[in-house]
Write a protein that binds this DNA or RNA. Structure first.
Length: 415
RNA sequence: GCGGCUGUAGCUCAGCUGGUAGUAGCGCCAGAUUGUGGUUCUGGAUGUCGAGGGUUCGAAUCCCUCCAGCCGCCCCA
């Protein structure tokens, strides 16, 4: 049997209905915040991600699907979308458009990681970028926007963490200070932390072992390494969030991220997700455009929601009503079947979903109507064609009435 | 990429001190007299027991390899 590729999955009904629900909700909120959709290619030149995301990140080092094209150029399946959006912004001179560019996207990304629940090699992100301003008010609005999306899909019990990682320079200084400090205290910590102190000091901050917490609390905070401007920027972001009555926790340990992050970073987690508990993450990337060759600065901030994970929490938190069938038409015989095609078209024009049965037996068609939870079944046989009166059965109550063609359409028009 | 656990009908699973697959539940199909579903009853189909190899007279059951999923690491969405 030919199977799907590892880490990639089929999204079947009824789950696909939840995906559509989530995407429709996101689009509504994006529209309210005046974001418009951008669609970028799934393939980009490898160098875009190498430079944009950062040569030293795990994503670029070991997780990209990179291959040589027939002409010898190196192409990569996008592992994230911010770099592509900025590339497009530069290429099409969107900085010449009036005001901010507020763009959103929905689509698949690819990273070759070991698959797990909530972690797939082809996964989907719903994201947005606000490019062209470094105002802290934009940071707060972007965060307000993601919170609004979560509310719109019915998720309330999440936690929002915000932090500021300052400039690249202050992050480097912080990393040094952390390493120096860890040299002394790491031996007293758990096995994992001792390893991380060597390989990736920032990861120590994520340790969940209770005994290590007192030590971690005494480690230096990145917030103490910010310069004056970064500190003020972060203060105002928090102020704007409070004005908007958005509940958040400052988490100085939230320092991970791609190389391009600067100043504000944020993350939202949800308990129902297990170890892959981050449902979305984002941050500011004021220098990314220049890194990618823009002559003019284009400070921006964005986020991406892990749609797979969002769908999981939506599925866990509420029972969504699946797509309903409005009318099942049961024609009795070939004449009726031909006759019903026009009838089906007329009912569909009322924006109702219609299934036109092709089975020979009425009993069988009634069964199918029932299994698909049709609201009505319309029975059309010789009697009905001759008399131009149709039998409409309400499947919930079992009531049946005989209606003229016009009365039938009127009856179906109102719920 | 590393470690652990798991893999039997469409789904959930039983069988696993080796003897050649389950009247299991749900679902699916058909019938209970020719234009009426949901309940009930009756009957039926479907599995190369994840794949390949090995041990054995004989393997779903033991061993090896591979594949996939899940959990942890790592990373992140």
């Amino acid at each position: 049997m030919i199977q799907g590729v590892k880490g990639m999955r089929d999204i079947l009904p009824p789950a696909s209905g939840v995906w559509n629900f989530v995407e429709a909700a996101a689009r509504r909120i994006f529209t309210r915040f005046n974001y418009r959709e951008i669609r970028t290619p799934i393939l980009e030149e490898t160098v875009l991600f190498a430079r944009g995301v950062g040569e030293e990140t795990d994503i670029v080092n070991k997780e990209m699907y990179t291959f040589e094209d027939r002409d010898g150029s190196s192409l990569t399946l996008r592992p994230e979308n911010t770099a592509s959006v900025i590339r497009s912004y530069i290429e099409h001179r969107l900085d010449q458009q009036p005001g901010l560019q507020k763009l959103y996207y929905i689509g698949p990304m690819f990273r070759r990681e070991r698959p797990q629940k909530g972690r797939y090699r082809q996964f989907y992100q719903i994201g947005a970028e606000a490019i062209g301003s470094d105002s802290p008010a934009i940071d707060a609005e972007v965060i307000e926007l993601v919170v609004a999306i979560l509310h719109e899909v019915g998720i309330r019990d999440f936690e929002l963490f915000v932090n500021s990682v300052g400039s690249k320079k202050s992050r480097a200084r912080y990393n040094e200070a952390l390493q120096a400090e860890l040299k002394d205290v790491a031996p007293k910590m758990c096995e994992d932390c001792r390893r991380r102190a060597q390989s990736n000091p920032l990861r120590v901050l994520d340790c969940k072992v209770p005994e290590d917490q007192p030590i971690i609390e005494r480690l230096p905070s990145i917030l103490d390494f910010l310069d004056e401007e970064d500190r003020e920027h972060f203060r105002r972001v928090r102020e704007f969030l409070e004005d908007r009555q958005i509940r958040f926790t400052v988490n100085p340990r939230l320092v991970r991220g791609l190389d391009y992050y600067a100043r504000t970073t944020f993350e939202i987690t949800h308990g129902a997700l297990g170890s892959q508990n981050a449902i979305l993450g984002g941050g500011r990337y004021d220098r990314l455009a220049e890194t990618l060759g823009s002559k003019t600065p284009a400070p921006g901030i964005g986020f991406s929601i892990g749609e797979d994970r969002l769908v999981m929490t939506v599925e866990a938190s509420q029972a969504l009503n699946p797509q309903r069938l409005d009318v099942y038409i049961a024609p009795m015989g070939d004449t009726a079947l031909r006759h019903c095609a026009a009838l089906a078209r007329e009912i569909r024009e009322l924006d109702l979903s219609v299934e036109l049965g092709t089975d020979r037996k009425l009993k069988r068609m009634m069964e199918l109507a029932n299994k698909q939870e049709a609201r009505f079944t319309l029975i059309v046989g010789d009697n009905e064609i001759v008399s131009q009166a149709y039998t409409l059965k309400d499947m919930a109550s079992g009531d049946q009435q005989t209606l003229s063609r016009q009365a039938l359409l009127d009856r179906l028009r109102r719920p």
